[in-house]
Write a protein that binds this DNA or RNA. Structure first.
Lengths: 228, 228
DNA sequence: CGGAATCTTGAGGCCCGTCAATAACGGTGG
DNA sequence: CCACCGTTATTGACGGGCCTCAAGATTCCG
């Protein structure tokens, strides 16, 4: 069989994912047998609020956004799922529904493990459970950070931090924003118009340089960090 | 020894706390030997940002608030620790520091378990690790909810929800707010002045009745729920 | 190349934060 | 029990940050 870009086997999934790290070879093989695969094209939904949540989802390849929809129709993005990330705390509890949506931002391959299988796995493999505890602990920390920033810092400050993090993650001075302005906006709890305005404001102050509408260069990281 | 209000033994702690539920008697006894106790008076700090985080903290009795301090000096409350709640995802990782503060709102008794002991416990007792995964999963859900509300809903709406939740928790029509306005404010991501104003606004609209400055009665729960 | 989606820019307004002064509360000690 | 003082709450005036609405420019992708 030809090796294609979307050709992922169960073993790939298990190898890729941090929560399965440092498990024994036999454990990994067991897990591989329990995993099912799905592919989603850009724009398709991995799940929607109200869907029954009966499995843990792991992103093997690609990128998806997870967001909630408030009563007034506003979106709030909660996180971007990258390769190796998982979602499904909801899936851990019996009879719970998703309260958020996950939409593929590009073609995305995911692995799923059924709730019951996963619970059994954790019972049999304490290492796995400990890995989960660590991963969830990290996530709690991130969310606490996000909550605090969104309520205490100005949009300009949040945007500056976002730019710094993004460029650091991509590890290059000139970088392309990986998201549309609308998505950046819901991530930072604001609107596309405001993002647009603040970006030109930062450029005018000489902290960043605008190469194209979604390509930027950090000019003065120190000042970006100090925006109130 | 006389039985005093603050007279809690290690067994009490283990019995009280959900994450130790459905463990075997011998497991619980083992845990009891690993636990140390501390008492804090109202206003004292259980820990502060920057402190080394080397143990998991469990509230055996009392109430404490956990909050972060933003760069500009603003507080953001993250949660209230009640009897049976624990904090310390930070404590799960080696060499990590607390990034938040915990202050006792009343006299509070806590149990602590050393990080290494707790990690070992989870390895030996998969049940415990699974309980932790469930507790952290629930917490992730709460935080996602808090993030979404704080960015998408108006202060009036957030306050209305807070009143509904609080009265539901206390299970009585007339209820006393368990927090000072300043604390409610940092919890909802606003200011005491705004809380004050919104409360009188809600009263003026006939949705609540103000009995005293911190005693209220819900008059129209349906309308409270529908505030945009 | 053409249409749709995204982005930009402007004008206007409102929610809410800030500052400040007064009032109410709560605990303490005489 | 009351006077006292620090903390907390209330109310007003004001301003600013950001959202909304709308129109035009640009980009994207088939």
């Amino acid at each position: 069989m030809a090796k294609l870009a979307h050709d992922h086997t169960a073993e790939d999934c298990v190898e890729l994912v941090p929560i399965f790290e440092n498990l024994s070879k036999t454990d990994k093989e067991t897990i591989a047998t329990l995993v099912t695969h799905h592919h989603y094209k850009s724009g398709e939904y991995l799940f929607s609020a109200g869907d029954g949540a009966d499995s843990l989802i792991i992103v093997a390849h690609g990128q998806s956004k997870v967001f909630q929809m408030a009563a007034n129709g506003k979106e709030q993005m909660l996180r971007i799922l990258q390769t190796g990330d998982f979602d499904g705390e909801a899936a851990l509890f019996s009879n719970s529904d998703h309260n958020s949506y996950a939409e593929a931002l590009m073609d995305t391959a995911v692995c799923q493990i059924n709730r019951q299988d996963f619970q059994k796995l954790m019972q049999q493999t304490p290492e796995l459970a400990v890995n989960m505890v660590n991963a969830l602990g990290r996530r709690v920390g991130q969310l606490e950070q996000q909550t605090t920033e969104v309520t205490t810092a100005s949009v300009e400050s949040r945007l500056a931090n976002y730019l710094l993090e993004t460029s650091a993650g991509l590890d290059q001075a000139v970088f392309t924003l990986p998201l549309k302005k609308k998505d950046i906006a819901t991530y930072l709890g604001t609107t596309p118009e405001t993002i647009s305005r603040k970006l030109t404001a930062l450029a005018k102050k000489g902290m960043i340089e605008k190469i194209s509408n979604n390509k930027f260069k950090i000019l003065d990281a120190d000042r970006l960090m100090m925006i109130d």
